[in-house]
Design a protein around this nucleic acid. Structure first.
Length: 478
RNA sequence: CGAGGUGUAGCGCAGUUGGUAGCGCGCUUGGUUCGGGACUAAGAGGCCGCGAGUUCGAGUCUCGCCACUUCGACCA
C-alpha cells in the first residue's frame, strides 16, 4: 500500500463512518482539543481563526442593519429563569448552577446563562419607558452553557460561543418582521461567506424555542444527508415582555407591552462548514473564512533563492490583503501537501528551482484538486479572482448536492425510505402534533422547517391523509 | 439513568501460566535527502487510572472506587 493510501486511512472513511470522520478531522486539523471538563472543547488557534473570520463578517452585517453590540453578565439569578413558564421548562434541565462564591453558600443560586433572554429582559424593563426608546436593537457576542448529555465538538458542546441578538419593538408586526429580516441575513451570510446553501423557513410548534410564539431556522444539509440547524430567529410577541414587565408609554398615552425577538448563530457554523464541504482528504474551507487562503510550499528550499522568492511572494500577497502562510519548516514537501489539504487551505502555491527559472509557480486548488501554473508577476492580481471562483464553485457544488437530495414524498413509506437514504423529504402536513410525533417515532426524522413559498406539492397529510395545511421538510438531524 | 467497552511513554497500542516495562508513530541530536507523508545512526521519555487484598513476588488474580468512551434514553 502506498504511503498516500495509508495517510487517507488515518482519517475514518468518509462514506461509511461519517461521524468518526468528522471527529478525526476536527482533532487532526487542530481546530480543537477536548477540554478537561467533559463536553467542553478547547478551540485551538487554527479553529479560532475561522471563528474570528465568521465573527467579523457576521458583525459587519448585523451592524449594517442598525444593531449595536453590548455585553450582559454571565451569571443570571435563578429567579429570572423562573419567570417565563415555557422558558424555564425548556432550559431548567440543562443549566449549570453556581451555589457557592466567596467561600460561602449563596442566598440565591446563580445560573450560568444558557441564553440571555431573561437577563436582557430584566434590563430592557428598566431601559424602555417611551415609544421614543424603541426599537431597541442589541447584539452580544458571548459564551453560553448548556449541560448536554452527549456532545460533539462544535455541533453540541456544553459551552459554546455565539452571537445573540435581542430586540424590542412597539408592535408585534415589527418584531416578527425583524425575525424574518435576520433570517434572510443569515441565509445571505451562509451563501456569500460560508458557500453554504440553506433552507429557511418556520419551525413547527414541537420544534420551536422554549418561550417563543414562532421560531424560524436555516437548515443546512450535511454530506451524509442529515440536517444541521445552523441559525435560528425567534418571535416572542409579549411573552417575555409580560414576564419581565417591559412596558412603554405609547403616543396615544397608554402603557403597552413591547414585542421582542431574539436570534443566534454559534460556533456550530464551523461544524456545518466541515460537514458541508469536507471530503476524504479532510477539511475544505470556504475562502472567505479560511485562516490562510493561500499556503506557499517551497520545494528544495535549501537551494539558494527558493526561500527568498517564496518570502517575496508572501510579502506581495500580504500587502494585497490575502491571508497567506509560508511553510519553511523542514518537513518534506509531500508531507506539507497533505497537511494543508487536511487543514483545508483553499490554494497551494508550490515554488521550486524549476519554477523560479521559468518565472512561474505551480498552483493547486483544494476544492477540486486542479493544478495549473501561473506567472509569478500575476499572482497578486489573479488571487482575489481565483478565491471568488473557488467560493462560487463550492457553493454550486453544495447546492447541487442539496437539491439532488431533496425528494418529494406522499406517504410514510416513501418518507422513511427517503430519509433513510440520506435525503430530506419535502411533503405536506396537516399541522397536528400527533402526526409529527408519529413520523419521528417511525422514521427517526424530525420536521425541519416550513418554507415561505408554500406552493402545495399535494393536498393530503403525509401521515394521516387528512387535508394538509403546510408544506414542510422532514429529515434526520444532528 | 440503562447496557457494553477501555484505562500501560506525548499519541496509538502489545504485554502469554503471576517472575527485569515493550512496539509503532512522534520528540531530541548528527549525516544523507527534498516536485505528493524520505533514509540512516545515536538518544531522551513510565506512580502500568486510584485504593485495598492474595502472594516470596502483581501491569497480570480478587474486591472497591474513579475517569473516559460506544450505543440507547435525553436535548436547541
Amino acid at each position: 500500500m502506498s504511503k498516500e493510501k495509508e495517510f487517507v486511512k488515518e482519517i475514518a472513511d468518509f462514506e461509511t463512518d461519517f461521524p468518526q470522520w468528522y471527529t478525526d478531522v476536527v482533532l487532526k486539523a487542530q481546530l480543537v482539543d477536548y477540554g478537561p471538563v467533559k463536553g467542553t472543547m478547547v478551540i485551538r488557534p487554527y479553529g479560532y481563526a475561522i471563528w474570528e473570520a465568521i465573527q467579523k463578517e457576521m458583525d459587519d452585517r448585523i451592524k449594517a442593519t442598525g444593531h449595536r453590540n453590548a455585553y450582559f453578565p454571565l451569571l443570571i439569578p435563578y429567579s429570572f429563569l423562573m419567570k417565563e413558564a415555557e422558558h424555564v421548562e425548556g432550559f431548567a434541565p440543562e443549566v449549570a448552577i453556581v451555589t457557592h462564591a466567596g467561600g460561602e453558600e449563596l442566598s440565591e443560586k446563580l445560573v450560568i446563562r444558557p441564553t440571555s433572554e431573561t437577563i436582557i429582559g430584566q434590563m430592557y424593563s428598566k431601559w424602555i419607558q417611551s415609544y421614543r426608546d424603541l426599537p431597541v436593537l442589541i447584539n452580544q457576542w458571548a459564551n453560553v452553557m448548556r449541560w448536554e448529555k452527549t456532545t460533539r465538538p462544535f455541533l453540541r458542546t456544553s459551552e459554546f460561543l455565539w452571537q445573540e441578538g435581542h430586540t424590542a419593538h412597539a408592535t408585534d408586526e415589527e418584531a416578527e418582521e425583524e425575525t424574518i429580516k435576520i433570517l434572510h441575513l443569515y441565509e445571505e451570510f451562509a451563501r456569500n461567506v460560508l458557500a453554504m446553501p440553506v433552507l429557511i423557513g418556520k419551525k413547527s410548534e414541537k420544534e420551536k424555542f422554549a418561550g417563543a410564539i414562532a421560531t424560524y431556522s436555516m437548515e443546512a444539509m450535511m454530506k451524509d444527508g442529515k440536517s444541521l440547524q445552523a441559525g435560528t430567529t425567534h418571535f416572542f410577541g409579549h411573552n417575555f415582555a409580560e414576564a419581565f414587565n417591559i412596558k412603554f408609554l405609547d403616543k396615544d398615552g397608554t402603557h403597552k407591552y413591547v414585542s421582542t425577538s431574539s436570534w443566534g448563530a454559534s460556533t456550530r457554523l464551523i461544524g456545518a462548514i466541515i460537514m458541508v464541504h469536507g471530503d476524504q482528504r479532510g477539511l475544505c474551507l470556504p475562502p472567505y473564512v479560511a485562516p490562510y487562503q493561500v499556503v506557499i510550499i517551497p520545494i528544495a528550499q535549501h537551494k539558494s533563492g527558493v526561500l527568498d522568492k517564496a518570502a517575496e511572494i508572501k510579502a506581495n500577497l500580504d500587502k494585497a490583503g490575502i491571508r497567506v502562510s509560508l511553510d519553511d519548516s523542514d518537513n518534506s514537501a509531500g508531507w506539507k501537501f497533505n497537511e494543508y489539504e487536511m487543514k483545508g487551505v483553499p490554494v497551494r502555491l508550490e515554488i521550486g528551482p524549476r519554477d523560479i527559472e521559468n518565472g512561474i509557480v505551480t498552483l493547486a486548488r483544494r476544492d477540486n484538486g486542479e493544478k495549473q501554473t501561473l506567472p509569478i508577476d500575476s499572482i497578486v492580481e489573479e488571487m482575489p479572482k481565483l478565491l471568488k471562483q473557488i467560493h462560487d464553485g463550492m457553493y454550486e457544488k453544495a447546492l447541487n448536492f442539496m437539491n439532488s437530495h431533496i425528494k418529494q414524498v406522499e406517504n410514510l413509506d416513501e418518507l422513511k425510505k427517503t430519509v433513510d437514504d440520506g435525503n430530506f423529504a419535502l411533503t405536506m402536513w396537516c399541522g397536528d402534533r400527533e402526526c409529527e410525533d408519529k413520523i419521528k417515532e417511525l422514521t427517526n426524522a424530525s420536521s425541519r422547517n416550513m418554507p415561505f413559498d408554500q406552493t402545495p406539492v399535494g393536498d393530503k397529510c403525509v401521515c394521516c391523509g387528512k387535508k394538509a395545511k403546510h408544506k414542510i421538510y422532514f429529515g434526520k438531524a444532528y
